[in-house]
Amino acid sequence: MTARTGAGIRPAIRFDHVSKAFDNRPAVEDIDLAVAPGSFTVLIGPSGCGKSTLLGMSAGLEPPTEGYVFVHDCEVKGPTEGTALLFQQHNLFPWMTAAGNVAFALENTGLSRRDARGEALRLLGHVGLGAFADKVPAELSGGMRQRVALVRAFALKPRLLLMDEPFGALDHQTRRMMQAYLLATWRDSGATVMLVTHDLTEALVLADRIVLMSGSPGRVTEVIDVIAPRPRDLADPALAAICRRLEAHLEAEAIRGEFGPDELARLGVLS
């Protein structure tokens, strides 16, 4: 699959000189970024660089302090229909069964309780989770929970899916399986995905485009288009080169975050 980042297409998300401060402390500063519709964008950067803040603003959960955020050409002023959100944890409500969680979303669209449950069972059955429909989240594995959460997110047929380290809590094998699952779901839905991660491999496996950020306050440092067929082979020299670039950047950021300039001079790092 080629990267769907063609010029001239109206962006799914557009950050127009966006800054956001919490209690007068800047979290992100002067973000200018456009995300192509149907593309898969990965935000990567050190902890506290405002990746999650960008997601929150795109979801309409918090307004920017300065600038504008547009989703599908509409300024975001609150939670928008057609935008789904997935976190690392606390996605499924523990007091509802898997089917109950999916039905909760469907009921919000005006479906009756019974119809919502029927549709939830159908959707869960469709992805092989029918047998777990009446289990509560605590009875499901971490991977299954995220799958149910994805089923619920896609139940509302979103055009934009925002994910904040969705597979961060999963073990390596489950994470790889979930990445494949996400790619397949994304391809079938045609939705735009913006995903935040710490994991370089994850970024390389998933992204059409990697947005590299640096910390405090968060800024976009670099935007890298990843043009390689999926499933991705990490041994591909082009990907390996990108990986080295990302690694160098993140390492520099991590060191910059942990040590002050005087300490760096003493250690002789980055000199």
Partner: peptide, 11 residues
């Protein structure tokens, strides 16, 4: 997260 998720799910 629960409130954010519920909000974006249209509740």
């Amino acid at each position: 997260e629960y409130v954010k998720v519920a909000t974006t799910l249209g509740a």
